[in-house]
Computed example of a mutant assay.
Amino acid sequence: MPVSTWAVAEPQKLTFDEPVTTLQVRVVNGTVNVVGSEETAARLEISALEGPPLVVTQQDGTLTVAYEDLHWKSLHKWLEDKGWRRRAVVSVVVPADCAVEVGAVGAEAVVSGIRGRTDVRGVSGDTSVSGLTGKVTAETVSGNLEAQDVTGDLRFQSVSGDLTVVDGAGTSVRAESVSGGMILDLDPSGRPTDIRLTTVSGEIAIRLPHPADATVEANTASGTLSSAFEDLRVSGQWGAKKITGTLGAGTGTLRAMTASGSIALLRRPQAEEEPHDAEPTGKVL
């Protein structure tokens, strides 16, 4: 299929009648909004633009909106060599089954309603994803990730960015950070989960459904531990401390590790319970 190309130097709207199966967006500063739709045509609106033109290309089902000199693999190193001012506000509506790749240097990214794979790579801008059913992978330097109502597998890696999961219905979450914190509110609807969290100095808080079903192991070298589950054992008086035990049948897995941060395991209230029952009631070390 021949390549269709547009050089966009000012605010503009474009509609693409050819099928779009993959979306790639790479911008510096500003905002990227991606929305999944049941429509077959894709729509693009660039509502603000500063600096050089954005190049829009469409070929073989791939729609790309990017600066010509900004590449996916060198995204994290880009600011070391480029210093001029750029900003773009990009909104794209694509078929919900589309695969999405967003590269954002200092830009905020919002992705919603996508059933395909979603990959986000950022430097300092925050990312928000909601209503995604495909696998989600996010890598940031200092940007935060907020995931709401995500049912696909979630992977997060950052230096200092925080991870927040709200109404997490997915069965697999794996996150690594150096100093970023992690807050997870999980409700996998009775399905076994595989949760693995690692941070050096960040704090970890996980709210599990009640009753929960997981084999639990949480460790901290010098932080504090708290658990709202009587079936779990909190041990260690000096130095390293850990929470271990089995909730329910132990079908799922929960692993959380931090060197100096604290770890709290909270309990989601049952329907007949008051919200305050979700607070930790077990031992604290």
Rank of each mutant, 00 (worst) to 15 (best):
residue 129 V to P: 06
residue 216 V to R: 09
residue 121 R to I: 07
residue 152 G to V: 04
residue 187 D to W: 02
residue 47 S to P: 00
residue 141 V to K: 06
residue 188 P to Y: 01
residue 243 I to P: 09
residue 97 D to F: 05
residue 33 N to W: 11
residue 90 V to F: 07
residue 122 G to C: 12
residue 13 K to M: 04
residue 204 I to F: 02
residue 113 G to M: 08
residue 280 P to Q: 02
residue 202 G to E: 14
residue 226 S to H: 03
residue 124 S to G: 15
residue 258 T to E: 08
residue 114 I to M: 09
residue 123 V to N: 05
residue 160 S to V: 06
residue 64 T to K: 12
residue 23 L to C: 05
residue 201 S to D: 09
residue 59 Q to M: 05
residue 137 T to R: 08
residue 51 G to N: 05
residue 21 T to G: 06
residue 149 D to W: 03
residue 42 A to C: 06
residue 128 S to T: 10
residue 149 D to N: 13
residue 240 A to N: 10
residue 247 L to D: 08
residue 137 T to W: 04
residue 122 G to F: 07
residue 237 Q to V: 02
residue 254 L to E: 11
residue 129 V to D: 00
residue 281 T to E: 13
residue 55 V to I: 12
residue 202 G to T: 06
residue 14 L to V: 03
residue 132 L to S: 04
residue 63 L to V: 06
residue 157 Q to L: 05
residue 34 V to F: 04
residue 127 T to M: 12
residue 246 T to W: 00
residue 85 R to W: 08
residue 242 K to W: 09
residue 172 S to N: 05
residue 248 G to R: 02
residue 192 P to D: 11
residue 275 P to L: 15
residue 159 V to E: 12
residue 226 S to T: 15
residue 250 G to V: 14
residue 254 L to M: 07
residue 10 E to S: 14
residue 241 K to G: 15
residue 100 V to K: 08
residue 276 H to M: 01
residue 128 S to I: 07
residue 251 T to A: 15
residue 154 L to G: 01
residue 249 A to R: 14
residue 262 S to P: 08
residue 111 V to N: 02
residue 74 S to Y: 09
residue 212 A to R: 03
residue 47 S to V: 00
residue 114 I to G: 02
residue 276 H to Y: 14
residue 203 E to L: 01
residue 50 E to Y: 09
residue 206 I to V: 15
residue 47 S to I: 01
residue 23 L to G: 01
residue 228 A to E: 06
residue 126 D to L: 03
residue 281 T to D: 14
residue 100 V to F: 00
residue 207 R to K: 13
residue 216 V to P: 07
residue 159 V to K: 09
residue 34 V to G: 07
residue 91 S to L: 04
residue 41 A to C: 08
residue 213 D to K: 01
residue 121 R to P: 00
residue 250 G to N: 11
residue 28 V to L: 09
residue 194 D to Q: 14
residue 138 A to S: 11
residue 100 V to E: 02
residue 162 D to N: 15
residue 252 G to T: 09
residue 225 L to K: 01
residue 64 T to I: 02
residue 51 G to R: 04
residue 53 P to F: 12
residue 235 S to H: 10
residue 147 A to W: 01
residue 276 H to W: 13
residue 149 D to E: 14
residue 208 L to I: 10
residue 270 Q to G: 13
residue 114 I to K: 06
residue 100 V to S: 11
residue 272 E to Y: 12
residue 274 E to I: 11
residue 51 G to A: 08
residue 130 S to L: 03
residue 190 G to Q: 02
residue 15 T to N: 11
residue 63 L to P: 14
residue 206 I to C: 04
residue 92 V to G: 03
residue 190 G to T: 08
residue 101 E to C: 12
residue 147 A to N: 03
residue 122 G to A: 15
residue 209 P to R: 09
residue 127 T to L: 02
residue 194 D to K: 11
residue 67 Y to R: 04
residue 23 L to Q: 07
residue 267 R to I: 10
residue 189 S to G: 12
residue 177 S to M: 01
residue 41 A to P: 03
